[in-house]
Simulated assay, not measured.
Amino acid sequence: MTIGNIRNALLAGLILAAVPAFAEERADQVAARVGDTEILESDVTFATSFLGDSNPEATQEARKSAVVDALIDLKVVSDAAIRDGMENDETFKRQMTFLRQQALRQVYLAKAAAVAVTEDVVRKAYDERVAAMPVGEEVRLRHILTSDQAGADAAIREIAGGMPFEEVAGRTSLDDASKGKGGDLGFLTTEQLPPELGTAIATMKAGETSTNPIETPFGFHVLKLEERRKREPPAFETVSAELRSGMEAQAVGKIVADLKASARIEKLVPDVAMPDASDDGHDHGAN
């Protein structure tokens, strides 16, 4: 959402039910005044949390100013609506009922999910997944890529004659991504390698260089196996947020299902499944 849309989003009532009472007294700074009503810094922070990302190119001060302008507009227009008796308008009442239910649902599920998915629960799920991971291996490789076998054979002869692998790779390899690093590909799993290279390194020892070129669809390779190590699982800190998000989604689904199971519900319209998002209704088969 851009800054120019912030004001419109608020005036459209997207967060009408969630904007705090401006007249409420709080021990924080005043950001603006509309008549006798103060718009506080905490009101700005609260409203900002509902607006999502604003223009990433704008400064923090510009984004804050736009939110304050939006809250000023919201206050001015809502006061005018009250003076015109809009609080008794049936459309307004229906909208407020819907927004209130929506806000209550959001708050209830967020708190219920937080109770169900604690730090200990996330940590336990992480430990269980790590324990279930198959034991794997990573290898650190260097390679020299040539367009033909003659070039690869020449590189092998240079290395066998005492020329450092890194120097030969930097001078002759066609792989621009690794030649500047002496052909270093970093740590990889066998699954990340072309199958021909995976087969070639299966019997190689750390520090060993291949004595014959290995052909793949990319060309001819000369390999040096630098190191073998056990594949470590991703650190908890790097996956905990994604893991928590998935667990919270599952928890919310269960909470809603349990609540519906205990409620008396009558759906009086046909229960029709939504079409798959990838199905555009057209036959894309062969003519």
Rank of each mutant, 00 (worst) to 15 (best):
L10S: 10
A12G: 15
I15S: 11
L16V: 14
A17N: 15
V19I: 15
E24L: 14
E25G: 10
D28S: 08
D28E: 13
Q29H: 09
V30S: 13
T37P: 09
L40V: 01
D43V: 04
T45G: 14
T48G: 12
G52T: 11
G52C: 08
D53S: 14
P56Y: 03
P56T: 05
E57P: 00
E61K: 14
E61H: 12
E61S: 14
R63W: 05
K64I: 07
S65M: 08
S65P: 00
V67R: 02
A70T: 09
A70I: 05
L71Q: 03
I72Q: 07
D79A: 11
A80Y: 02
A81Y: 06
R83S: 08
T91E: 12
T91K: 04
K93Q: 15
K93R: 14
K93A: 12
T97P: 04
R100S: 14
L109K: 02
L109N: 03
L109H: 01
A110L: 00
A112Q: 13
A112C: 04
A113Y: 01
A114L: 01
V117W: 00
D120C: 00
R123P: 03
K124P: 01
E128A: 11
V130E: 10
A132V: 00
E137D: 05
V139L: 10
R140A: 08
L145D: 10
D148W: 07
A150D: 14
A152S: 06
A152Y: 03
D153M: 09
R157E: 15
R157I: 07
E158M: 13
I159T: 09
A160H: 10
A160M: 10
G161M: 11
M163H: 06
P164Q: 09
G170I: 06
G170T: 12
D176Y: 05
A177E: 15
G183R: 10
D184E: 13
D184G: 10
T189Q: 11
T190D: 13
P194T: 11
P195Y: 08
A200M: 09
I201G: 04
I201Q: 09
I201H: 06
T203E: 12
M204A: 04
A206H: 01
T216Y: 05
P217Q: 02
F218R: 09
H221S: 10
V222M: 03
E237H: 07
E237I: 07
T238N: 12
A241D: 12
S245H: 06
A251L: 05
A251K: 03
V252I: 13
V252D: 07
K254F: 03
I255A: 08
L259P: 00
A261T: 01
A263Y: 00
A263W: 02
R264W: 00
I265E: 04
D271W: 03
D271E: 15
V272I: 15
A273C: 01
M274C: 00
A277M: 01
S278I: 02
D279C: 06
D279Y: 02
D280L: 11
D283K: 03
D283Y: 04
H284G: 07
